[in-house]
Design a protein around this nucleic acid. Structure first.
Lengths: 217, 217
DNA sequence: ATCCGACTAGTACCGGAGCACTACGCACTG
DNA sequence: CAGTGCGTAGTGCTCCGGTACTAGTCGGAT
């Protein structure tokens, strides 16, 4: 049985949410709170598995309440439930330690499923937020101008790639030489070859290029 | 009515999935395919709204099939359904243009809801994958060792921060001087002060530190 | 067998980076 | 008014980075 606390400042919605949750055999509402501060008290009192939390509330808003709850009661998961699908809300909620973010216009079964998911220790996001998050994760495609760099890196020899990695980590030629048990002069040759092959003017640009392309290597 | 095509190489599972989908009033199975190649044909024939797609299949695997389907039929959404919750699968699926990624051990209602979500043009992820994606996206808090750097940057003067930005972009002292209409010597002073305040040995470390901390500035 | 590319090493040279020290104008403050 | 901090500028010095040229070894390809 998953024990749920509902926190919303609108009484009607609070009760409606409670009913929606309670119709499931495996979910049980253990309390209703009308603001973040009250939620904090009831969490301490009932130790619920999941808190359904609104964001915009008087006294103590849902984000701050989430932060306090997850710090004081790590076993209790918070599922944010809001009307507004703003990226800043999603971000703030997750940053505050929320396990999920759903919209109030979600079908009731999706809400119940969300409770089960966060109770199991996983995360759930509103479909719209999921879409945007995937989009945000995708622009991993390198710029047009970096494409030829990627190709050029493939032309490097194993040794050169090894040197490039150390170079990009910020090591000096001498440090790279010590690390590879080579002479400083040899490293300079490798660096020169790397810069020539990548058509870069100096090691700083190599460092920048390498960090830029790191996700694609 | 959302029209669904089911694609899986195991006949039992294929039929079971079809039944699970068909019990919903708003969902209708328009075809069953036993590999990616057959799915491609049936998509062309029936133009379904959603394809439930397995990954591991003979002839043509689900990832490649997804790539071909979304290219040839952009209106058809693909929802990947697999047994294995591997990050590489999730990534490959989304990269191939899938709108969703669910696991076969998901409750049937979650599966039906997933179909509705992708049919509406949004994305859905298995809870486990959602959790990991959020972890990956959460701009990890700066390391312990970087905390004092952040503080130190606050002690920089406006001019020094300006120089640091240009320095971190990979510009030479001379280039920075030209850009700010100052003498090269003045820039060297600023750089020296910056390195001293941030306790860094050279500009390369400044570049690395700046790129590392960029999300937190 | 010969040639070529990769890896190694060295010397020499130039320019940029970074530091030390000095110095002046300006604005703010005690 | 003097002191302080900031921004500006210069000189001189050392060290590192990058290039040029030479040169040896080794393994694979012609």
């Amino acid at each position: 049985m998953i024990r749920v606390l509902v926190c919303d400042d609108e009484q009607l919605l609070r009760e409606a949410l409670g009913r929606i949750v309670d119709v499931a055999d495996d979910l049980h509402v253990v309390g209703l709170a009308e603001n973040g501060s009250q939620a904090l008290e009831l969490v301490a009192k009932h130790s619920p598995d999941v808190v359904l939390m609104d964001i915009r509330m008087p006294v103590l808003d849902g984000i701050e309440a989430t932060r306090l709850i997850v710090r004081a009661h790590p076993a209790t998961r918070v599922l944010i439930l809001t009307t507004y699908d703003l990226d800043s809300y999603v971000y703030a909620a997750l940053q505050a330690g929320a396990s999920g973010f759903l919209l109030k216009d979600a079908p009731s079964e999706r809400l119940r499923d969300g409770v089960r998911i966060v109770a199991a220790g996983n995360s759930v996001l509103a479909p719209e937020a999921t879409t945007r998050m995937i989009e945000a994760l995708r622009p991993d495609l390198p710029d047009e101008s970096d494409q030829h760099l990627l190709a050029a890196i493939q032309t490097l020899t194993d040794r050169e790639r090894e040197v490039l990695t150390l170079l990009a980590a910020g090591h000096s030629n001498q440090a790279i030489a010590d690390h590879l048990h080579l002479s400083r002069h040899t490293i300079k040759i490798h660096v020169s070859n790397i810069l020539a092959k990548l058509n870069l003017p100096d090691r700083i640009q190599a460092v920048l290029a390498h960090t830029r392309l790191r996700p694609h290597l």
